[in-house]
Amino acid sequence: MFDMIDLPTIWAGLLAVTVLIYVLLDGFDLGIGILYPFLDKDKERSTAMNTVAPVWDGNETWLVLGGGGLMAAFPMAYGIVMSALYMPILAMLIGLVFRGVSFEFRWRHPSHEGIWDIGFFAGSFIATFAQGIVLGAFVQGINVEGRAYAGGWFDWLTPFSLFTGASLVVGYAFLGAMWLIMKTDGGLRDRLYTMALPLMSAVFASTAVTSLWTPFLSPEIFDRWFALPNALYLSPVPVLAAILAWRLFVNLKRRNDNKPFFLAMALFVLSYGGLGISIYPYVVPRAITVAQAASPDGSLGFMLLGAVVFLPLILMYTGYSYWVFRGKVKEGEGYH
């Protein structure tokens, strides 16, 4: 039954979408944490946290599906990538520990609020920076011999990976700010509007630098983007980015609360698509292809059955949860 379908490609696509959903959803959660130091201690921080308190756990689960799915669908790639990116992956996990518990711990002791404000910020910041480093280190290439990683434990550390780390911090902060503009009002929203344009400029600048830097990492990526006729097909990508920048600018100026968030998400989707163009058809860039690393069809087919049943359900009840907690969260409106 599965002979008709190219299961490895389907799973590569599903996992790419999974990671994209994770980046979009946990992106704004983590962004709120990154923005925490700039928010007022008394009320704004509580309000900001409450805008995501009911949904953050579900958002983070997409990361678990990404990890588990990679192990299931491309076990060799999972082993190679995790060994190669050992330090940043574990830094991310430890960051997520601090970030996750802060949602609960912050409310549990009147004099400990400050500790978990720091925990929430530092956890979000470390997790995001580490994710950005993982992204950069992944794109720049991993040293593979046979079926295993063959490099040292600091190979990931390069100017490029540090730059992508910093870029993601700015990017998530921007997503978080757009989310808060949509979900709050009053002084908190005003404060975010004042931060919006500088943040947006930083995001577009770092995206531009990353986009120009990436093709120079390898001739293969360079040709993918700049050799004819590819260059023609891909020329809409920067044009779309420019249009998004314009729409964001206009809507932020007009103080349209809802649109900037979705435009910011669109920018992430576009950048992610550009990344995919640079990586395809590899699952470990320029070392292991999707087809080489794939589990046998017996595994992929069994799992696809589950995905067909469960993923629509997941999207439905996740949507329901967002709908239940729709609308703006008022200052002082606490759930706890």
């Binding site: 756990d57 588990g68 799915g69 299931a72 076990p75 009840y317």
Partner: peptide, 23 residues
């Protein structure tokens, strides 16, 4: 991975999302 991976993926899809989605 070809055996344990799908079991873990089923855990995520049938259990973790359910818990997190309704929590």
């Amino acid at each position: 991975g070809p055996i344990l991976g799908p079991l873990l993926a089923y855990e995520v899809m049938s259990a973790f999302f359910l818990e997190a989605g309704f929590l």
